[in-house]
Amino acid sequence: MAQERKPVTTVKLQKMKASKEPISMVTAYDYLTAKLADEAGVDMILIGDSLGNVIQGHESTLPVTLDEMIYHTKAVTRAVKSAFVVTDLPFMTYHGSLDTTLQNAGRIMREGLSKGVKLEGGAEIAHAVKALTQAGVPVVGHLGLTPQSVHVLGGYRIQGKNSEQARKLMEDAKALEEAGAIAIVLELVTEELAEWITSKLSIPTIGIGAGASCDGQVLVFHDMLGYEPDAPAKKFVKAYAQVGLAIREGIGQYVAEVKGRKFPAEQHGFKGDNEVLQYLYGTAVK
């Protein structure tokens, strides 16, 4: 039996950057998914508001509520023994007063038992990151393609393709670091810019579509395991399994066997004793 891992902490994550040990991160939204990811050795688990897409079927993350994030966080944290669990603060839950931001993050930590929260944005939310950090809440930043701002960005577009964007992203990364963030996710950022930002920060960067120079990588669970077999391929995703095909084929076989009266077979049922048979049919089987 594999030896149980020690819990991953903020100190461990910092040491991993310093020693150039890559950090692995995946999303999870339920108990069994989180359990499997944790047992597989993942370092960080993100309860992402991407659940709006892959669990709820929305076109964006915007409809996801705080209560829904807490619900899924509860399921995940019941399963995890080692990985560092982070939960997204959903759309418009950290852009008002600091009191409201602290209250919302506090609910995720207190009710969901998450170890930290993730916020999208740069210098404009640094004051919130600082307040959360001072209150004892570990914060992961998120720069580049920020799904909660997809309509402002004009769609799902590569970020950092010109000098102005590059300068702004570096300024935002530095602002988050100075505010106390423990790590920063870089999404759909050009490889050169991601490498530059990573080299200038003392905290880890976690890339998704940002090249191999980040301190770690994150993928959405359903993307990396091929849960939606007919979905268009994403260039920055590698599918490590084709779970969707296996599920569809398995259910299809079940339907066929039910329709053909092949399931359940004799070995799937239970026989009554003579007393029950006497009661039901008025006779016992010898």
Rank of each mutant, 00 (worst) to 15 (best):
V218K: 01
L62S: 01
L13N: 04
A256G: 05
K6S: 08
T87P: 00
A2W: 11
A2H: 15
S24I: 10
G106T: 02
A179N: 05
R248N: 14
F270K: 03
W196K: 15
I184W: 02
V237E: 10
G272N: 03
E21S: 07
A37R: 06
L188W: 00
E187Y: 09
D223E: 12
M44P: 01
S24E: 08
L193V: 09
E191W: 10
V8G: 05
V117M: 05
P138W: 07
G122I: 02
Q134I: 03
G260N: 15
P204S: 13
H127G: 00
L225E: 00
K12G: 01
P22K: 15
E228N: 10
Q217D: 14
K168C: 03
L36M: 15
T205S: 15
K35C: 04
A83G: 02
V86C: 11
T65R: 03
V76P: 02
A37D: 00
E275V: 14
E228S: 07
A131N: 06
K168I: 02
Y240N: 11
K262D: 15
Y227W: 14
V218H: 02
E171I: 00
A18G: 11
L132K: 06
P22L: 12
S149N: 06
L153D: 10
F270L: 13
G209Y: 10
Q217L: 09
M44R: 01
D88K: 01
A256V: 02
G155H: 01
V86R: 07
Q56D: 01
A135N: 11
I251Q: 13
Y94P: 12
I182M: 08
H58T: 02
N104G: 06
D273S: 11
K161P: 00
H95P: 01
S202C: 04
K234D: 01
H58Q: 02
H268M: 09
F91W: 08
V64E: 05
Y254T: 01
V140R: 01
G207W: 12
E266K: 13
V85Y: 08
L36K: 13
H127F: 07
T27W: 05
A123V: 07
K6M: 04
K234E: 03
D172T: 14
V80W: 09
G226Q: 09
K161E: 10
M170P: 00
P229K: 03
